[in-house]
Each structure stands twice: as structure tokens, then as C-alpha cells.
Design a protein around this nucleic acid. Structure first.
Lengths: 235, 235
DNA sequence: GATGATCTTGTACGATCGTCCAAGATATCC
DNA sequence: GGATATCTTGGACGATCGTACAAGATCATC
């Protein structure tokens, strides 16, 4: 019976795939908790309850496993880019800034509720990790996302120079990473503030939108007017 | 001659102190560049051009050397706390927010001009380092600074709940660390924006002040009142 | 039941890590 | 000039790291 055979074959393949996924999950959680260099391949194998050598068999080198974790979650990056592209940034939309910030930040913030909160932590840790493996990931995966938000934001907030907007993006990113990663909030607030609160996404959007709106346009008294004219939006 | 004797003695002691300082400087630069776990004691000894064992003689364990780097720069922390305490936060001062943000951020941003830019990078790296050695430093050295700004800010911006203010502080800190540490600015702006520009301090103060002012007071429609759903404009 | 591909596993290699120690060098004090 | 305290040095220890390899186990196919 073909059915029985295929069932047996899929049983074997599925068992292997399950262990592969277990490794991926453990790697994600541990890298998020302790950073790339703070985790050994043995730690990951131990957490996934598989022998050390199996990790190498499935994923090769440690750096490749690190990349595989991001590849496994690549959907979240494209989701953010798509949502940014879908925002109405014509002058007609009075909430264009809020919509852009939300499109950019919400998929990350909501990861916590989706049960994938380890990955949001991992993104933050990786953005801050000084090691070359982490930097390579950021440049390869997230520079495109940065440009798509910056370009859209420059259309929604005309008159700002590109360097002004890049600084605004950097501040917003720092805030987002803090929002997602920092555990100090509970300590500093005496346990009252909790980063898991779903309403915090709206709060974040409000605050960061205010930040972007405060970016000075060329001609304002504040800063960043040297030489360069503000760039023109890309095609 | 006592003078000659003391001169000889100080020659010896000074030579030792110079090497001690060289180790401290190399440690600061390397920890800032690659993080705590990314640097070996051998790297530090090599950069300081001293034998490996001399590092252990002067500073003991690696973690103690790490602490010594922060202790050596502790003046910058007290300077920030003092400047925050000196700000007029009575209702009479219309620029209380700007003054507070500046008192808090300027000593760090200006480190770059003071030739101690490695330390500002180190502070950022340490704030983000997931390892226990870095966390211990942050909690021991910087929680007090955080509280002093939060407390002052709550007086300058009355009506905001403490958790709201803590979140504002977290966002501001994320922005400051990005301002000081990130090298992506130049890449994203095509080389035009430079983090070393002195005027960037004023720019930072303007932006982050706007962020703090946007923090909703109790009674505002936006968020963070227990039990009530936020009403946020959506497209 | 033999064959071959896929998956699994214990083990071991070389490199690097933090730490420590005993001996040497140097300047100071009696 | 000998005793003493301080500083310096090379070398070695055990632990842990990433990676690789060869042999075993499992299962579809002939």
C-alpha cells in the first residue's frame, strides 16, 4: 500500500524535521537571551535535547545556524516592508505618520503576543551585537527595511533633509529596540509597567510619531542645514 | 637629596602607573569596539604592549578590569546627576524639559569631542550587552542616574504616571545610545550624516524634548490608563 | 534480504580562553 | 651591601570552544 509506505516515509522525515525545528527554536531562544557569542553550539544542542553533532549535520557552521534562524522568520521583515508600501502617503492622509510608524513597528511588537517573543528579542540583540556575524545579518536583512521607511517618511514629511530623516529613524529604532528588548522597565517602574501590554503598541506609535513630526524642515532654526539641499523622493 | 630620591621613586611608580593606564585605555577601546565577551585579556595586553600576566597583576580578574574602566570614568556619571539636579524645574522655567534632556545627554555626547569617544561607545555597548558582567555594571552605576532624570522629569511634566515616564525614559535612552554608538547613520545617509557633528547635541535635545512633551497626561485619550481601551486614530 | 540514502551519535582534534604561579628584575630602605 | 617591597615576565594549567570524522542506526527501494 502506497499510503502506508508514504506514511512511514513521512514519519521518518517528519521526525527528522521535528528535531531540526527543535534546534532552530532552541537556537532562537538562546541567541535572544545571551547573544551570538554568549551561546555555544553545545548549549543549543542541550536545550533541544539532541546530540551535539546533529546540529552540525543539519545546519553546518554556527554562523549558518544563526542565519537560518533569521531566514526562518523572514516573513516578518517582508510583512513590514509590504505594510509600509501599502500606507497612503499622499497629502490626503492626515494619519500618514502614525500609519507608517505602525506598519513599521507593529509586526515586531506583536511578535510577543504571537508566541514568538524570543525572535523580537533576538532582533534587538542582533542589532546591538558588535560581532561581525550579527552585523552581517543586519546589513543584509534590515538595511532595505530602513530605506523603505525612510523614503516613505520623507514623502509624508516633505522638506526634511535625508540626514535629518536618517537621524529620526535611528532614534525611532533605538526606541523600538528598547521597547521590545529591555527588561529594565519593570525594575525602574517598581513592577508596574509591563512590556507585554498590548496597548503599548498604540502608545509607541503615538510617541514615535511625535518624534518624527518634530523633525525640523529645511528653513527651521534647528540644525542640519549645511550645504545639502533636502533630497528628492525616489521614483 | 630627598628630591632626587623622590624623583627616582616617582619615576618607578610613574612608569608602573603609565602601564596601568595603558592597559585601562586599551581595555576601554577594545571593550567598546567588540563588547565584553568579544575581547580577550590577551587582546588587551597586546594592544597595551604589556605581557599578559601584568594585566592580572594590576587588575585581577577580567570582570574587575571591566569595572575598573567604568570606575575610571565615574566622573561623567556624577556630572550628569549633578547637572540634572541643578536644573530649575519650577513652573517658572519654560525650557525645563530641554534643560533636563541636555543635562542628561550632553556629557555623553560631548565625550566624543573630549577625546574619550571610546567610553561613550562602551556605555552603549554595555547597556545592550546581555552578559551578566555588563548587566551588573548597568544596574550598579546607571539605575541611579535613570531615577534622577525620571523623578525630575515627573516634576517638570506633572500629571504623567510613573510608568508612562519610565517608557519615555526608555525611548530616550534608546535614542541616545543610537546617537552615540550606531555607525549605520553614515551608511544609510550615503555618508552625509556624521555622528561627530557638535551641532547634533542640540538636534538631539530638540527631538527628545518633543518626545517627552508628547507623553500623555492622565486624562488624555491616549493609553496607559488601567482598564480603558485606548482611542487611537486609525486609517 | 541486499543496497543505498538519510539520519544519528560518540568521540576527538586543535585553538583559545581566564587564571594562576614561581622566578626574575628593579628601586627603596636600613 | 643586604633586606624588602614592588613590579615584571614566561610559561603552564584545566576548561571550553567550533568543527570534523567514522561508525552505527533507520528506512525506502530493488
Amino acid at each position: 500500500m502506497t499510503g502506508a509506505v508514504e506514511e512511514k516515509r513521512s514519519r521518518k522525515a517528519e521526525a527528522a524535521l521535528d528535531r531540526r525545528l527543535a534546534i532552530l527554536r532552541s537556537a532562537e531562544a538562546l541567541f535572544a537571551e545571551r547573544g551570538y557569542s554568549g551561546v555555544s553550539v553545545r548549549d543549543i544542542a542541550g536545550a533541544a535535547k539532541v546530540p551535539l553533532a546533529l546540529v552540525g549535520y543539519h545546519f553546518g557552521r554556527k554562523e549558518d545556524l544563526f542565519s537560518a534562524v533569521f531566514a526562518h522568520r523572514s516573513g516578518y521583515v517582508t510583512e513590514r516592508i509590504d505594510r509600509i508600501a501599502a500606507v497612503d502617503i499622499s497629502g490626503a492622509n492626515p494619519h500618514a505618520i502614525e500609519d507608517l510608524v505602525r506598519a513599521w513597528a507593529e509586526p515586531v511588537i506583536r511578535l510577543r503576543e504571537a508566541g514568538a517573543d524570543a525572535f523580537s528579542l533576538l532582533v534587538a540583540r542582533t542589532a546591538w551585537d558588535p560581532g561581525p556575524e550579527a552585523s552581517a545579518i543586519i546589513e543584509r536583512v534590515y538595511d532595505g527595511l530602513a530605506h523603505s521607511l525612510i523614503d516613505a517618511m520623507m514623502q509624508a514629511l516633505p522638506g526634511r533633509s535625508r540626514e535629518t530623516m536618517v537621524w529620526g529613524y535611528e532614534y525611532a529604532l533605538g526606541a523600538l529596540l528598547m521597547h521590545v528588548a529591555d527588561r529594565r522597565v519593570e525594575r525602574l517602574s517598581g513592577g508596574r509597567a509591563q512590556s507585554g501590554d498590548p496597548r503599548m503598541c498604540d502608545f509607541f506609535v503615538q510617541m514615535i510619531s511625535a518624534l518624527f513630526r518634530a523633525l525640523p524642515a529645511a528653513g527651521d532654526e534647528t540644525v542640519l542645514r549645511d550645504g545639502e539641499a533636502p533630497s528628492v523622493p525616489r521614483a
